[in-house]
């Protein structure tokens, strides 16, 4: 493959204490993702797909093994280092914890730019407007998250993941709270991102959605059981 190696997962294992015993959620997982790929990680609940995503975003750390993202060894970063890294390098869409409650939809999208100190204030305003437009939330710009539907919140979170124009975006069931129509619209947006050279990696339980991506990695019982490029 000619494009650049972006994610390199090497023999990652993760164990959690559950109740009184330990559960091995990820078992010696290795794979690579190159720039410009559109990857779906699928699997049943409990297969370890969300945990795997957490390893890639530095949200959680492996028990053993290494994760390199764009050459950065995540193990080398402190919690704060991770925050600074995330700010500029990646975008994340969570399934549930989407928006900061006290901030309007627009402010939520603006926040990562301010945190990373990217763009001038004027540029920020313009970017926020454009990003809102992309996800069809222009009219909800000044609303508080508690006033908009779950689907709207999730779309705002999708817009926010792209706030700092990262090359790599992760999503954990990024369309899970949306009806099929808006889910499809979001999917088109993801495809658009990939078309412009970004890499998008999402966790989903929907095989139908996964089938529309470029590559499916299927987990079962903490292991990769299938990895195929469509």
């Amino acid at each position: 493959m000619s494009s650049k190696l972006l994610i390199d997962v090497q023999q990652v294992t993760k164990r959690f204490p559950v109740g009184h015993h330990e559960v091995e959620v990820l078992k010696d997982i290795s794979f690579q993702v190159h720039e410009g790929e559109f990857v779906a990680i699928v699997g049943q609940s409990g297969s370890g797909k969300s945990t795997l995503l957490n390893m890639l975003t530095g949200v959680d750390r492996p028990t053993s093994g290494e994760v390199f993202v764009n050459g950065q060894r995540l193990k080398d970063l402190s919690e704060d280092g991770l925050a600074h890294w995330r700010r500029r390098e990646i975008g994340i869409v969570f399934q549930f914890f989407n928006l900061v409650p006290g901030l309007t939809v627009a402010q939520n999208i603006r926040l990562p730019m301010e945190l990373a100190d990217l763009y001038t204030p004027l540029e920020r305003t313009a970017r926020v407007a454009a990003l809102l437009d992309q996800v069809g939330l222009a009219e909800r710009a000044t609303w508080l998250p508690s006033r908009v539907s779950g689907g709207d919140q999730q779309r705002a979170a999708i817009a926010r993941a792209n706030a700092n124009d990262p090359r790599l975006i992760f999503g954990d069931e990024p369309t899970g709270r949306q009806d099929p129509r808006s889910a499809a619209a979001c999917f088109d947006l993801f495809q658009e991102w990939v078309d412009t050279g970004k890499t998008f990696l999402m966790v989903t339980h929907s095989r139908a959605l996964a089938a529309r991506t470029g590559r499916t990695i299927e987990l079962a019982d903490g292991r990769v059981i299938r990895d195929e490029v469509h």
């Binding site: 700010r87 914890f97 926040l111 990562p112 990373a116």
Partner: peptide, 10 residues
């Protein structure tokens, strides 16, 4: 957690 995930430092 959400703030940190989108890049807020400690």
């Amino acid at each position: 957690g959400e703030l940190k995930a989108i890049g807020a430092s400690s």
